[in-house]
Design a protein around this nucleic acid. Structure first.
Length: 193
DNA sequence: ACATCGATCTACT
DNA sequence: GTAGATCGATGTA
């Protein structure tokens, strides 16, 4: 079965639905050093009226990508060290996104190990800052169209089984909202059980 | 201008 | 379990 990129319509759906349905899909980055990819196994939803969402207080230079067309990447820099990657959801004008929190490494594991300076596979992509480093995703890819460039999401029709719902991690505002998702069968790869 | 703090990770106790 | 790294966005004056 050929692997197809997720279509634009996928990202126009309800953000919580996108967060759940992109579990099991494959995030791919074609870099100059080679292709790196991993299966998405942990996500969080950020909604437009959600105090924890960067866009909840209106458009700024930093968050403007979230207000744009769905199916683009919102990549931001935080804590002076780390990048985090989101999938922009909802039609243009509605700023919502899905944070990718963890991957199961698939291709380019050698390159990931070099990028991360780690050798244990479960240390490569088990956190939002880790996976961007492993895949070489930085500020340059902010706003990238996931249907056009070297960064995209494929569907290989893997059934990930039962999905676990948990409160989000690492935030203070609206921290109780149960908008973090991961498949039970992939628990070993997530940032936190 | 200045102070604060964050959708994190690592190393150390 | 908790401190420290480090910088840009944001809020207050």
């Amino acid at each position: 079965m050929p692997l197809e990129k997720l279509p634009r319509e996928f990202y126009m759906q309800d953000t919580i639905q996108v967060a759940r349905e992109c579990l099991g899909k494959i995030l791919v980055h074609e870099t100059g050093e080679g292709v790196v990819s991993g299966r998405i196994i942990e996500t969080e939803a950020y909604l437009h009226d959600d105090p924890a969402c960067h866009a909840s207080r209106g458009m700024t230079q930093r968050n403007c990508v979230m207000f744009g067309e769905p199916g683009h990447a919102y990549v931001y820099f935080t804590y002076g060290f780390h990048h985090c990657m989101n999938l922009v959801t909802q039609p243009k004008g509605t700023a919502e996104a899905v944070l990718i929190r963890a991957l199961e490494p698939i291709d380019g594991i050698e390159l990931m190990m070099r990028n991360r300076e780690k050798t244990r596979p479960q240390d490569l992509c088990s956190g939002p800052g880790k996976l961007t480093q492993a895949l070489g995703i930085g500020h340059a890819l902010n706003g990238e169209d996931l249907l056009g460039g070297t960064l995209y999401v494929l569907d290989d029709h893997t059934d990930v089984g039962q999905i676990v719902t948990r409160p989000r991690i690492g935030i203070k505002l609206a921290a109780h909202e149960p908008w973090r998702f991961y498949p039970l069968d992939y628990q070993g790869w997530v940032s936190k059980v």
